[in-house]
Design a protein around this nucleic acid. Structure first.
Lengths: 234, 234
DNA sequence: ACCTGAACACCGTTCAAGT
DNA sequence: ACCTGAACACCGTTCAAGT
């Protein structure tokens, strides 16, 4: 583990005999850093420190911090479960995919606004995920021109739900305004009670909301394959 | 519009005869700044410049920049359409609410990760929105212990969809990897063609995905009110 | 209580100099 | 090509001094 060249002994300037960095090393260091200190701790300076180089050295391998985030995102996409789309019934495959997708990014919430608008061009793992999902939809008989919309709709729900996992347990505490919001306050109380009845303590609530929405989406998408059912107001 | 005291003429230190700031003025200035320069332009320094004060003066009214974001969020929540819940059939009320909610926050995407985990305590407009939605659900016959989960599921979809609105038109361009992702590449092409057939140019695609998902959720939620239909794997 | 102005401890990024 | 080290133009936030 300990490099022969420790950074306590400082390296002199100039190109080293063999490159010290590379996108894979940067990716692994970034992931480790996020695991240890969260996204607040992911700074170019901290990343460089972990890799025993000067911050400016990173810019020989990435064009910006945004590039580092893309490297991390690509790695995470490879962890999303898509194997079911080749073999399982459509609802089962989507369920496994959706739960793993949400769980992977729940721990990487700050990445979500980035991914949601990120072009897939030159992101091979991300593309392979979409390819697997698409073939699964086609195999289940989805019309080709609706597949991407359906994936985007499911993904939107997954991203939003991944953010919800990070919500504090008391997010819906109505506090001093409880008297002005009687229906909502009562519903919140009932929800907490229902979530506790089934055993688990805190994360149970976002799991239940995710399950409810996912099953509704699955049922609605299955039922609504007939053309021209939806229209957009405003 | 022009204050008698212009900042070209500088103010001397010390408490002014009447307070120059206030949370409402800060909120309005922040919204204007975001409208003009986006969230990248929303810095404490820029905000102070707009208000003709020193940056440090802001800290007499907010504890942090995060506080400023919360002020903005509260203002935006007041713009979400909830009037339908008092009068309209449940699906119509949810539709109007969901579309307006998505449209408001599509232009404030950087706020979404903040809102998603933000306690509602002491956020009166946000709470009033939840109260209106909850009464609408109760009126439609929803069991009280499932209402909050259903709202959270819908909100998750809305937040994710609001992020999707900001995606570039070519987000699914498979580029040099098109040959390795034939199914997905074909589906993307078909989607673009279908979206153009109906008239509109670019935003049409996220609108279609949102409509598809929302209608599926509405149908699935309506159908799935029977207990114990969903279960969570892994 | 509520302002100014100076200061602090960071950021991400650029670039000349070195091998 | 790929590193170091110095420098730049910012950040958000704190705090003494002033009225």
């Amino acid at each position: 583990m300990a490099e022969p060249q420790d950074r306590a002994v400082r390296r002199r300037a100039g190109r080293p005999p063999r490159a010290l960095l590379g996108t894979d090393k940067i990716t692994r260091a970034a992931l480790k850093l996020v695991e240890l200190e969260g996204y607040r701790g992911l700074t170019m300076a901290a990343l460089a420190r972990r890799l025993n180089v000067a911050p400016s050295a990173l810019y020989n391998h990435v064009r910006s911090k945004q590039d580092v985030l893309l490297l991390v995102e690509e790695d995470l996409m490879g962890r999303v479960e898509v194997s079911g789309f080749a073999t399982d019934p459509w609802p089962d495959a989507v369920r496994a995919w959706a739960w793993s997708y949400r769980n992977v990014f729940a721990r990487h919430a700050p990445l979500i606004p980035v991914i949601a608008v990120l072009p897939v061009t030159d992101a091979p793992r991300t593309l392979m995920m979409y390819e697997a999902v698409t073939t699964g939809f086609a195999r289940a008989g989805w019309p080709e021109d609706q597949i991407v919309d359906a994936i985007v709709a499911l993904e939107s729900f997954i991203f939003g739900s991944a953010l919800d996992v990070g919500a504090p347990a008391d997010i819906f505490d109505t506090g001093t305004l409880a008297a002005q919001t009687p229906s909502f306050t009562a519903a919140v109380r009932r929800r907490a009670a229902a979530a506790q009845d089934n055993g688990a303590p805190g994360a149970a609530e976002s799991d239940r909301a995710f399950a409810l929405g996912l099953e509704a989406l699955l049922a609605g998408l299955s039922a609504g394959l007939a053309p021209g059912s939806a229209g957009a107001p405003g």
